[in-house]
Amino acid sequence: MKKIRLISVTIAMSLFVFTGCDRPELPYDNKIEGIYVGTITSPNGQSKEERKITEDAMAEITKIGNLMIEVHLFNSELDTTLILNYYDDMNFVRVCFTGDDFETAYGHRLSEDHISRGMMGHIQNNETEWMHHLNDEHQGDGDEEHFGEFDIQDHSFRYRFDRMVDGITTKLEFQGTKL
């Protein structure tokens, strides 16, 4: 009987050790995935006084890799998909371009350590993932713009982007709340 109990304890401890080595779900991983219902707003002219055009829209957020999401924005006029990295920043999860889109936007590539997401092992001085990303990956005095975020407390997602139609670029902003 003692032998069976010892084997059971050994198996239980082995399972505990093996499952403890996996990367646990981060608290916001499951909170950002899902469908967000809201609007896409675009300016109707150059001045602030001119009316804005607002249309109903949806965003479907799907986790596709380690700290990487696919954002599918769509409505009756628009259907676009973005691949973005995401970073914890207290009550927010902020997003940034990845791969070639990062290089096109900022003029330099992500470092190799950060592409593999090994960067989180050397966060220091109580940095959030977002602060660490900004400090390690963005150059200059913080003038490299970012375009979106999730607000964990109010379950919302906001993202600004450009749309090219007939050679004309229009700035758009999606603002939605999770279903």
Rank of each mutant, 00 (worst) to 15 (best):
M1W: 09
K3Q: 11
K3A: 07
R5L: 13
T10R: 05
I11C: 09
S14N: 05
V17L: 09
F18K: 04
G20A: 10
R23Y: 12
Y28A: 05
D29T: 14
D29G: 01
I32F: 00
E33A: 10
I35T: 14
Y36R: 15
V37A: 15
V37P: 00
T39G: 03
I40V: 13
I40K: 11
T41K: 15
P43Y: 01
N44K: 11
G45F: 06
S47G: 00
R51C: 05
K52P: 12
K52N: 12
I53A: 07
D56E: 14
A57D: 05
A59W: 06
I61L: 07
T62V: 04
K63Q: 02
K63Y: 00
G65W: 01
N66F: 03
I69G: 02
H72M: 10
N75G: 08
L78T: 02
L78G: 00
T81M: 09
L82P: 01
L82Y: 01
Y86H: 04
Y86K: 00
Y86G: 00
Y87L: 08
D88W: 03
D89Y: 09
M90A: 07
N91G: 10
F92M: 14
F92A: 09
V93L: 01
V95W: 06
C96R: 10
C96E: 14
T98N: 04
T98K: 04
G99W: 13
G99M: 15
D101W: 07
E103V: 02
T104E: 09
Y106H: 13
H108P: 05
R109N: 10
R109W: 09
E112Q: 15
R117V: 03
R117F: 12
R117Y: 06
G118P: 06
M119D: 14
I123N: 06
Q124Y: 11
N125M: 12
E127T: 08
T128D: 05
M131L: 10
M131G: 01
N135F: 09
E137P: 08
H138F: 13
Q139Y: 13
G140D: 09
E145G: 04
F147V: 00
F150A: 06
D151P: 03
I152E: 02
D154E: 13
S156Y: 05
F157L: 13
R158I: 11
Y159P: 08
D162V: 14
M164A: 00
T170C: 12
K171P: 11
K171W: 13
F174R: 03
Q175C: 07
L179G: 13
